[in-house]
Amino acid sequence: MRTLLNVIWLVFAGVWLALGYVVAGIVCCILIITIPFGIASFRIAAYALWPFGRTVVRDPESGVLTAIGNVIWLVFAGLWLAIGHIVTAIPLFVSIIGIPLGIANLKMIPVSLLPLGARIVDADNQYYPSR
């Protein structure tokens, strides 16, 4: 079932959302000081392509620099990407088959707003994996 949902997701929402994250990642990597944001953006782009069967887990050991970085991300990229998730979720909710896709889209908003200090893991292994 996960594979079927992922394929449908890829066609209707995944490619466009991943493209937005890739563009944000490229811009962040061009501006050398924001390379950590670019890496996080590329990681979320892969999650946006194939989200079913994976989940986001917060790092309990992330510190003050992660919080400051998340605030900077929120202002410059996170808000726009979250709006992209909302805009993509609305038409998905129109059809019955799109409702799970819309819900998955809304579940991605927290990681799009605050990507630093988050890991994307398999849903079967929701514990925080060792480094």
Rank of each mutant, 00 (worst) to 15 (best):
L4V: 13
L4H: 02
V7W: 10
W9L: 05
L10E: 05
L10I: 02
L10T: 05
F12Q: 07
A13T: 14
A13E: 13
A13I: 03
G14D: 13
V15P: 02
V15D: 05
V15C: 08
L17T: 10
L17N: 04
A18G: 13
L19R: 10
L19Y: 13
G20W: 08
G20D: 09
G25K: 08
V27H: 05
C28A: 15
C29T: 06
C29V: 10
I30P: 04
I32F: 11
I32N: 01
I33W: 14
T34R: 03
I35W: 11
I35Q: 03
F37V: 05
G38W: 06
I39L: 12
I39W: 07
A40M: 13
A40F: 07
F42S: 09
F42Y: 11
R43H: 12
I44Q: 11
A45Y: 11
A45Q: 02
A48G: 04
L49P: 01
L49I: 15
L49K: 12
P51F: 08
P51E: 08
F52I: 05
G53D: 09
R54D: 00
V56C: 01
V57R: 00
V57F: 00
R58Q: 14
D59C: 08
D59Q: 04
P60M: 03
P60V: 15
S62T: 14
G63Q: 12
V64W: 10
V64D: 07
V64T: 11
L65Q: 11
T66R: 10
T66L: 03
V71L: 12
W73V: 06
L74M: 15
V75F: 15
L79A: 12
W80V: 11
W80L: 14
W80S: 05
A82G: 02
A82I: 07
A82K: 05
I83E: 04
H85T: 09
I86E: 06
V87M: 03
I90E: 14
I90S: 06
P91C: 12
F93H: 09
I97K: 06
I99E: 10
I99V: 15
I99S: 07
P100V: 02
P100M: 07
L101F: 08
L101A: 15
I103Y: 06
A104Y: 01
A104H: 08
N105I: 01
L106Q: 04
L106G: 03
V111K: 00
V111A: 01
S112K: 04
S112W: 08
S112I: 05
L116E: 13
L116Q: 06
G117C: 03
G117L: 07
A118P: 00
R119E: 01
D122H: 02
D122C: 01
A123S: 08
A123M: 06
Q126G: 13
Y127S: 12
Y127E: 07
S130Q: 10
S130K: 00
